[in-house]
Structures are given as C-alpha cells and as structure tokens.
Amino acid sequence: MRKAVKLFSAALLTVSGLLTAAPLFFLFCGSLMGSGELGTYLGPYIYHTDGYAMWRLFPLYPTLRNLIRLVLDSPEFFHMFWNTMAVTLGILAGQFLFGLPAAWGLARYPVFGRRLFYMLCILLMMLPFQVTMLSAYLVLNRLGLLDTLWAVIAPGAFSTFSVFLMYRFFCGIPEEILESARIDGAGEFQIFVRIGFPLGASGILSAFVLQFLECFGMIEQPLVFIKKKSLWPLSLYLPEIEAQQAGFALCCSFVALLPPLLVFGMGQKYLEAGITAGAIRE
C-alpha cells in the first residue's frame, strides 16, 4: 500500500513536471524543423486552413537552417540580444555598486530611520510596475533619459528588491565575528570587503540570479520608455516575428532563453535560497 502511494506520487510529479518543462523541449525541437515541415503541422494556424495544428515530438527532417539564418542573416537579432544583455548587466552592475553597500549599511549600522526605510524597500518591491510607471516617466523625462537604454537601466539599478534580499542575508551574519574583527584592528571598509562580502555571498548571488531572470524578460519598462526600435530588447522583438516564419521564430525564442537557462542551471541553489529568504526568518 505505502509503496503504491509512493509510486503514484512519483508518477504524478513526473507527469506534471514534464508538462511544466515541456515548452523548453517544444522550442528546441521546433527550432530544428524546416519551414516545409512546420507548414504542414501548423498550417491551420498559419494559413487558417481547415483542421487543427498538430505537433510531432521530434522533427522528421531535422535541419539547422533556422540557426544558420539566425547566425548569418539576422543582424537585428544580435542587435537586440545585446540590448537585452546591456540592460540586464547594467542593472546588475548598478545594484552591485549601489544596492550592496546600502544593504550592508542598513543591516549592520544603527542608521536613523532604518526601520522606516526597510518598510519602504518592501513596499516598493511589491508595487507592480504600473503603479510607479508615471513617476518613473516624469523623472526620466526630466533627466532626458527617455528613449535611451538608461531609461530602463537607471530605475532597475535602484530596485529595492535586491537591497531587501541582501539585507536579509547580511542580518544573518553574527555580530560577534564583526566585533572580533574590530578588536583585531580591521577598518569598517575592510570588514565589509573581507567578512561581509564573503559571508553574504550566497545572498548576493541569490539576488543576482533572481534579478537576472527578471530583467532578461523585461517587457513593461522598455515598452513604455523606449520608442526607438533599434534600442528594443529581445523580449519586444520576438513577438513581432510573423507566423509564416515559425521555424525562425522558434529558433530565436530558443536562443533567447539560453542565457537565463544557463544562469538558472548554475544558480538554482541560490534561486531557491532567494525565494525562501522572503518567507523565513534567517
């Protein structure tokens, strides 16, 4: 009986897990299909012929034509890929420069108004983008940053989510360690670099993994702050590819998700730690 229950739950988890992960597989296989093959399967969707779109698990005639076209013949893909990368890495760099020290200071020193600020951080990270959209627009307009990549990078760099996350991890470092370092004559900056940084590293990584995944797929911000098409990130470009080029679109979609997939693969541990940090006291 117990064994049957276990087997059943394993089966249930496997099936639902596979279904959840299926889109990845779909994109991979689809990007290997030629236009002829896709035309047959997806005809009812693309050309509105009778019947229903179908799918084959594995391509019948696998081809790299889509990939070749992407690499050799679509400069716009690379252009937008680099836009996405610039935005994502720019935001992460900004958080490293500004958010990290802010989190450390907040966690370790009795700053005036620290509780109030902490609450503000939480409130700001919970607000949907649309609530702060108008205020962000007004500032960016005044600073003359609209229609540049900075319009997305600058507000993102000061996102309070990573401050909050790193703060939680920094709070977990026992005060005694810092005390003994002080007695040994370490300066405050030295303590931050030598002790806080390595001990809080998992928190910093958690924040970065979560932020990377978030920023890479950004849609709302570039949609309202960037009108110039040449500055668009991939996430605005992908939906624009026409249905007739399904194979190419699938290939682009697949290549576009490789960087976040890589970060996810390397940082799953930190991702999980980052998720739970919000719910459990360290």
Binding site: P23, L238, I241, S253, P260, L261
Partner: peptide, 17 residues
C-alpha cells in the same frame, strides 16, 4: 528544477507557443 524552469523562460519566448 522542472517546476522552477518557467521562471527561467522569458515570457517573450513562449508567446508563439
């Protein structure tokens, strides 16, 4: 991993699907 995977897939990549 399987259930977290959607977090790593940008929304734009699944539009067509």
């Amino acid at each position: 991993s399987a259930f977290l995977l959607p977090m790593a897939i940008p929304a734009a990549s699944v539009v067509l699907l």
